[in-house]
Design a binder for these strands. Structure first.
Lengths: 188, 188
DNA sequence: GAGGTCATGTAACAGGTTACATGATTGA
DNA sequence: TCAATCATGTAACCTGTTACATGACCTC
């Protein structure tokens, strides 16, 4: 049930509507807790019903009205409690590794293509993270940001995403090499 | 819907009952596609109903009978098709990073404890993976295994798990340092 | 005789995914 | 005028989690 807490944490930084929140999730939170707009809308309703969020209606001129949410005192407390209870170990569910364990002589080409595909995806993601990082750092270098930056938690989470993608790419490259090595050794 | 394909791939290596499969998932597949016994039993029933698995009843002497599953030709084909379709990017959902983005002066101690906890979990997991790796390698070294080992796909997936945990630990250590650095700077 | 393993399952629920609907405004 | 963006939602469905139940055997 960490989606609620991801939402509470995001709204604590800055209040937002469902639409705005889902945009923010796309760029930053998606790194560690992906969620579709539908999930977010549903959870916002529940959080409001449970008294953990305040909603206020903001009327706009040439745009649809929006409901802007921010945590209540109870919401802040709930977030505090969440931090105290033990985390379960990270669950990774990766299609690609399912394909890799199914590797055999007949599908080596398709598995290779799947890994190459992932490598490209990973490069794109890393590029995005690097741009977000540059924007966060501004004119500080990393050590300065770690010492004095405004959003240390966000920065640390972003670093996890960056090192994950780097690691991903290294794994893709070495696996491609290993599979190619086998294939050149096979007659045909 | 990769659970089905994870199961098909696992059964292709060696037929198994639901109980045996869930044990195997615990030790190796859990690395990239965790699943509870209940999920596995449900999916086995569906796979059989869809004609992708054959079930045979094995009667045992001093133990309950078991149903042992193996892929049908249609099951093999389904796995082949799965490998051809593009993978979605990995979804990581990590409680701990939700806590980290919620970091502030008041909860720094609790967040620190959560990271330390994760570091210990990660060490335990890495230890497990290393033991599995040693068992797979036997008396081969890594290069030899990559060139000639029987279960290249499994070995590559395991390597992903190992590097993920190493990376996890490096992140935990550097984050603990960054948070501690802040706290010594704060009066109190 | 208590607790663990072998073996399978039911039931209820929470969480995540996909498809679709609405309707105004803005920019190419 | 066509597509994109802003803004919110319903509905149906699939996947994952948790709790519980059964019963025999094995080991201490």
């Amino acid at each position: 049930m960490a989606l609620r807490h991801a939402i509470l944490a995001a709204l604590r930084e800055e209040e937002a509507s469902g639409y705005e929140l889902s945009k923010r999730f796309d760029v930053s939170v998606a790194n560690f807790w992906p969620a579709t707009p539908q999930q977010i809308y549903r959870e916002l309703d529940r959080l409001e019903a449970d008294g953990l969020l305040d909603a206020k209606l903001v009327e706009q001129d040439r745009r649809p009205n929006k409901r802007v949410f921010s945590p209540t005192a109870a919401g802040e407390e709930e977030l505090g409690r969440f931090i105290e209870v033990p985390s379960r170990p990270t669950a990774i569910r990766d299609d690609l590794l399912v394909k890799v364990v199914a590797l055999d002589d007949d599908n080596a080409e398709a598995v290779t293509a799947a890994i190459e595909d992932r490598l490209e995806q990973s490069k794109a993601k890393l590029g995005l993270y690097q741009r977000i990082r540059a924007a966060m750092l501004g004119d500080l270098d990393e050590d300065e940001y770690l010492a004095t930056g405004q959003q240390l938690g966000n920065y640390l989470a972003l670093r996890r995403g960056i090192s994950f993608e780097r690691d991903n790419q290294a794994w893709c490259r070495s696996s491609l090499k290993a599979i190619a090595g086998r294939r050149t050794g096979i007659p045909g």
